[in-house]
Design a protein around this nucleic acid. Structure first.
Lengths: 335, 335
DNA sequence: CTGAAAGCGCTAACAT
DNA sequence: ATGTTAGCGCTTTCAG
């Protein structure tokens, strides 16, 4: 059992109130007693109990973050930003790994609410009705990160996926490509899947390029294997394709690997543009041209948004973060 | 302000003690009152306050994890395992990002101690004297993950880096290579750097292969860029090299990229073996042969170790986890 | 400038 | 089977 404020008070011959004041930098004590108390604290190695503080202040200086997946550098970068902003704000972050599982998610939500975290960041996943209702009932602040809700008024931080995908397709078009395919990720995914497909289609349409079934391969997810299989399907249904927009960097890397296996040279015979700008993107062969999301900044912004709610009590505006095309070597001007 | 146990008690016409007993599954109430109380809890949407519980039980069901870096898939996999084991144990995990900075680390340690987490996992970094003393003074349990301490009796979970590096070199030797180089990472790093170099050298020596200065390139860190530059240096100082052991997968990927730029074909002209078996390893061109560490399992083991200490009060044995060579396509039998 | 005392929400004796 | 009460370690009136 460690020392308490009482021990400090006794040893310094003052009341616990005085110790508390000194600890919290409030007024009401002489410089002399302050020094005396500080010395005792030092000697005892006293460490204030944040649990007791939390009970009375109704602030735990802890926030909770829900991720569908931990082992992806997308999530890691977001977490990096969140942790950074939280730390600058004197808060800690509890990470929860939902595996996109509804039951697990509800359990985590319950846990975080019981722990009385100051707020919740819900990342990279659809905010279900059930989740929203439960969190609302507890009155706990929540923000969305890299996702958004069409049904509920929850503030979010994210890029505009439609615009970003449009930019990717336009980049390919500007490089002279007209036979352009997309490996889309999950099109059922209303927040990251569908808008990217729509953006891609719109870009082709706006530039007078017909876009039919053969231009798009719908994969199940956004992973490496989806890209690996995706390119094979694409070459079957659209052999003339000269450029591909992958809905994620991991898909793009899968495309790169598949191209290598099939003996297709990137970028000479096939241009590839990704989406996300993960750390991986610069490590591929060739280095991947991609649509960059400011992931770390987005994480930071979401945490800051949460702290703003905590201060002001008001729900802030959502933030659309800027994307940009990061030019590397996987896209080539069409001959 | 949410409801308290008092509100529940009042509305159900029982004492708070009864509510508490029902909440904690203790004996001492009729089925009838239980149902009544449960109904009130449901109606109110009452959620027990874990902060208050923590204050009295001296258990927060939260553990803290310190990482030098967040955005690396090595760390992510470890975290994944930790989070999993913690969740199975009814605990949450707070992540801290130290950036290998002594001051930041001390601040985080202080924070975690004030928050009265149940224990600490210190990962992938040297446990400095200062850290150790501070944690000991608080009597908080601590375990080391993917690192170890020669100076202090702190239990750890890790692979045997010496043996693992030996295995990597031996694998290359068994494939007929004799002109073998190593890109070593930081040799000042006493726990991950040095032992891998030693293991490499021992393997060459045991097989009658001379190992001099030219066989090893000491890079600053374990990252992609270290590999990128590493291969160039290696080719300068040891042009005949036919196989390379990279002290990390990221270094290996850097080597792959550098080889590509230099027009050196992997594995035809140069074999490469990595270390870690990150998710990335299967995504490279060609897929990377590497020494696999069971990262997720290691994370789990470290958390379980912590919980064991919490239960038994005793310091458990450290665990050396098994490594294995994961054969993919970046190493070729020497012609 | 300093102290006494109430109470945050809960658990755990101790009564009844 | 159920209630009363004393804290857990701290902050914060309210007195002096």
């Amino acid at each position: 059992m460690s020392y308490t404020i009482k021990d400090v008070a006794k040893k310094a011959n003052v009341s616990i109130a005085t110790v508390s004041r000194i600890l919290n930098g409030q007024a009401g004590y002489s410089e002399k007693t302050k020094l005396k108390v500080l010395k005792v604290i030092e000697e005892l190695g006293y460490s204030p109990n944040a649990v007791a503080r939390g009970l009375i202040n109704k602030r735990t200086h802890t926030i909770g973050v829900l991720f569908p997946k931990l082992s992806s550098s997308l999530v890691t970068d977001l977490l990096d930003g969140i942790e950074k902003a939280a730390n600058e704000n004197g808060s800690s972050v509890i990470v929860c790994h939902t595996e996109s599982n509804g039951e697990k998610t509800m359990n985590y939500l319950q846990l975080l609410i019981e722990k009385r975290v100051d707020g919740i960041i819900f990342a990279s996943e659809i905010l279900k009705d059930e989740y929203y209702q439960y969190v609302m009932k507890s009155k706990m602040p929540i923000v969305l990160l890299s996702t958004e809700s069409y049904a509920f008024p929850v503030p979010y931080v994210k890029v505009n996926d439609f615009h970003a995908a449009y930019a990717a397709a336009k980049y390919l078009i500007d490089k002279g490509h007209t036979d352009i395919g997309m490996i889309s990720g999950n099109k059922e995914d209303i927040v990251a899947g569908k808008p990217r497909i729509d953006g891609f289609q719109k870009a082709l349409a706006d530039h007078g390029i017909a876009c039919g079934e053969r231009n798009i391969v719908n994969s199940k997810g956004f992973g490496f294997h989806d890209g690996l299989e995706g390119l094979r399907k694409m070459k079957e249904q659209f052999p003339e394709v000269t450029a591909i927009f992958a809905a994620s960097d991991e898909i793009a890397i899968g495309v790169l690997s598949a191209a290598y296996q099939l003996g297709i040279k990137v970028p000479e015979e096939l241009s590839v543009i990704g989406f996300d700008n993960l750390n991986l993107a610069e490590m591929t062969i060739p280095p991947l041209t991609t649509i960059g999301q400011p992931l770390v900044k987005m994480g930071e912004a979401s945490a800051q948004m949460l702290f703003k709610i905590l201060e002001s009590g008001e729900i802030p505006e959502s933030r659309i973060m800027p994307h940009k095309v990061v030019e590397r070597l996987s896209v080539k001007e069409r001959a």
